[in-house]
Design a protein around this nucleic acid. Structure first.
Lengths: 241, 241
DNA sequence: GCAAGTTTCAAACAGATGTTTGAAAAAGCA
DNA sequence: TGCTTTTTCAAACATCTGTTTGAAACTTGC
């Protein structure tokens, strides 16, 4: 494991230092590849500290997830400042931006996105809880936006597929960073890059979903009586752009 | 590591059994999490066999990648039966299908997609070679399709972003399988599911790219004289950079 | 100031894993 | 067959990692 700047823990409680050092290490190399020794080294604590304060490595990991989860929730709310009454397109943009910022935030207390992102690929026992507490609500939030954008009758599978299409684009840059940076060394993921990325993903997804919505409503209009069709197409709220 | 059916290696050379068992184990749990003992057990070989035949675990891994790379290339060509003179939309569909099939193929000699997919997330030294020999050509192939679909002047960054949007959707279902299967246990990834998935990703991406292309050409038509614009859209060759 | 509880520490332990070893077995060849 | 080379094998080795231990240092409450 590469050398890293040691956190000055003189004023902090050992327990808290361990959580923070753990967040850093777990986020960097994942649960399986990180070692208690490295975490303790960065926290300026003794090797036995993890077991003394938490019981074992897995318990520290759960604690780290809990800690950063509450931080992340207040720092990156799903809506990101956009009211739930806002047009669906705007809410989608907010969702994408929030998602990317969460994953690419390099500030010291933003490990949560990375931790979850790692869980997705190399799960520990903690993933079950994360899915219920964190991912499912997000999926439902996004599902609501997509459903509104699609309009018409809510085909569950279509909503799911489109939602996945949106989040997959966001996750890609984090999951495949090793490949992306080898393919295009100039890609840097500065704050401006993140904004451009968010803009692209939003545009791309909006265009796709709207086109699918058009096709869908055209198809259903062939099945439905004219009056009902009119009602339908009108009641589709604010797919503005 | 979970128990697994042992390969009948009685007729095979030990060396070959090791490559095949290695392919299975590496694809299942990745290079870092797989053990020489488990590979040898499945190959029906002695623990020392890996070091005797390959030198060390990393060398076996390189050999496994090489072996399945040549297999994968002949089993899943990029074009997948679609001529390079075919319309870009059809070539995109072929690309997506081929990509998904490669990753989700459960037949015994199709570890390559999974191996590369794992490399993307948890790289070993082998990734550099893989990017040059395998990923870059694919990226250029896809880039050519996207460029043609976008039409107009080739904005390098836009092509790259759209290409990423396409592959990210394909990779998602493999990378995030643990999450997807927890969120929606009914998702099974049968051959028919793969086809539906391919269809969705193609439709989604085509709709998005075409919409972006329309907007782009509308914007450039405001900048260019009519004659030059016409020339541009017609003279663009249908291929690589 | 002192006793009880809490926290830290260096050292050791236990288990897993990649690798080596030296002899035995098998295969190739005259 | 008899000899050499190649391959297999069980055992051991060395290292890394999570965990435990028991004593020392520190803190707290009276």
């Amino acid at each position: 494991m590469a050398a890293a700047p040691q956190v000055d823990a003189s004023a902090l409680q050992t327990r808290q230092s361990l959580i923070e050092a753990g967040g850093a290490v777990f986020a960097e190399v994942g649960f399986h590849n990180s070692t208690v020794r490295e975490i303790c080294r960065r926290a300026g604590a003794n090797i036995a500290a993890v077991n003394y304060h938490f019981g074992d490595k897995a318990a520290l990991y759960r604690e780290v997830l809990d800690y950063y989860q509450s931080r992340s929730l207040q720092k990156f709310p799903l809506e990101l400042g956009v009211r739930s009454s806002a047009p669906a397109a705007e809410r989608l943009r907010a969702f994408v931006r929030s998602f990317l910022l969460r994953i690419f935030d390099h500030s010291s207390d933003a490990w949560h996105g990375k931790l979850i992102s790692r869980e997705m690929i190399d799960p520990t026992n903690a993933l079950d809880a994360i899915v219920v507490e964190r991912i499912r609500p997000q999926a439902q939030h996004l599902g609501g936006i997509v459903r509104e954008l699609l309009g018409g009758d809510p085909n569950v599978e279509l909503v799911r597929l489109c939602s996945f299409s949106v989040v997959s684009q966001c996750l890609f840059y984090h999951h495949c960073q090793p490949v992306v940076s080898r393919l295009f060394p100039e890609q840097k993921f500065s704050p401006e890059d993140i904004e451009r990325l968010a803009e692209h993903i939003t545009r791309f997804s909006l265009a796709a979903i709207k086109a699918i919505a058009r096709k869908q409503s055209a198809a259903s209009s062939r099945r439905l009586p004219a009056r009902k069709r009119l009602q339908r197409t009108n009641s589709r709220p604010a797919t503005s752009r």
